[in-house]
């Protein structure tokens, strides 16, 4: 995780003449395990938070039994239930595709956490093409969604997958445009550099004209994680559950995990790009980082439980007719301001 830790242990290893590839492999495994554990714990918290927030908005109580008055262990109990359920392959499903789809969705949603800085030099690997890596990897799960829709051999699932593909493609464009604004402003694709640029001149959200980019990022991020008003691929009341309608038990849990992991990632990345990442007074950097991320998460949840859902043509039109032109304008504007 920490570059200096890597150096210290690496040096010790090297001094004792041990083969370096073992160290590299062990380090990778350890990091992967760390990220996985962090993500799983975050999802547990997020699901609980979502249920509590939605309950509060809907004048309900929410989880209040498992593990005490506020039901903190409710999600753990639910996860356990999902683990113990029968593993069902629907008759007529394309078994290989059906089996593979949850992993194709889940793995990329973990991989993106690699470049996320939890503190100063506290990222698994601060790639020099960090932003590009995020864009590339987070575009990957949609393939899994199409696989799930197709493999299920269910019309609702196919419709859901079609919607997911169309929506994901349409919203990636303005999402990338919003990130380009930030990259242009910071002058680097490395996430660490973007954070450093915010240390000198203040958070990017406060710097003209990146407010526009922030808005674009926030809206498209909601669409990317399929949240109301953009939850069409799942659309409970229309497509029952969309692409994962045939999934149950642990396979369903993977979709669920991926969705919430992705939700946390887009929020955390939003905090990184626009809200100064881990920087803040008094509190330790990791705490600041989590605070900012959760603030965005709560905002997204708040919106989700307040507004209705759009229709597919409205979702498409919103992106291509409004967000994409706005994004292009934002890039040009950012360039002008930067050169000025």
């Amino acid at each position: 995780m920490n570059a200096s830790l890597y150096n210290t242990i690496g040096q010790w290893w090297y001094v004792h003449g041990l083969p370096p590839w073992i160290f590299e492999a062990a380090w990778m495994v350890a990091m992967a395990a760390l990220v996985t554990v962090f993500v799983l714990l975050s999802v547990l918290v997020l699901v609980w938070l979502e249920r509590k927030i939605s309950a509060d908005l809907q004048s309900r109580v929410g989880p209040n039994r498992v593990g005490g008055r506020f039901g903190p262990l409710q999600t753990a109990a639910d996860a356990l239930k999902l683990l113990l359920k029968e593993d069902i392959f629907p008759a007529g499903a394309d078994r290989v595709v059906f089996w593979l789809a949850p992993f194709v969705v889940f793995v990329p949603s973990l991989m993106v956490f690699m470049v996320l800085p939890f503190g100063e030099r506290l990222a698994v690997n601060d790639l020099n093409l960090g932003v590009l890596f995020v864009v590339a990897v987070s575009a990957f799960p949609v393939i899994g969604l199409i696989m799930a829709g197709w493999g299920s051999n269910n019309k609702y699932a196919v419709l859901g997958a079609m919607r997911a593909a169309a929506q994901s493609l349409s919203y990636e464009v303005p999402l990338v445009l919003a990130m380009v604004c930030v990259v242009v402003f910071a002058g680097s694709l490395r996430v660490g550099d973007i954070v450093a640029a915010q240390r000198e001149g203040g958070w990017f959200i406060l710097r003209f004209p990146l407010q526009l980019a922030f808005l674009l990022y926030f809206i498209t991020a909601m669409a990317e994680v399929n949240r109301v008003p953009f939850d069409l691929p799942e659309a409970e009341s229309e497509l029952v559950a969309g692409y994962h309608v045939e999934y149950s038990g642990m396979r369903f849990a993977f979709f669920f995990l991926a969705e919430f992991a992705h939700l946390f990632f887009v929020s955390a990345f939003c905090a990184t790009l626009f809200l100064g990442a881990w920087q803040g007074p008094w509190l330790p950097p990791a705490v600041w980082f989590l605070l900012k991320s959760y603030a965005i998460v709560i905002l997204i949840m708040w919106i989700r439980w307040t507004v209705p859902r759009l229709r597919i043509d409205q979702v498409m039109g919103f992106s291509w007719k409004l967000l994409v032109p706005l994004g292009l304008a934002a890039v040009v504007l950012t360039g002008i301001v930067k050169v000025w």
Partner: peptide, 16 residues
Amino acid sequence: FANDLGATTVFLYGMR
């Protein structure tokens, strides 16, 4: 009706 359109919260308001 609200629930069909995805506004889950109004569902509970009506029921309340």
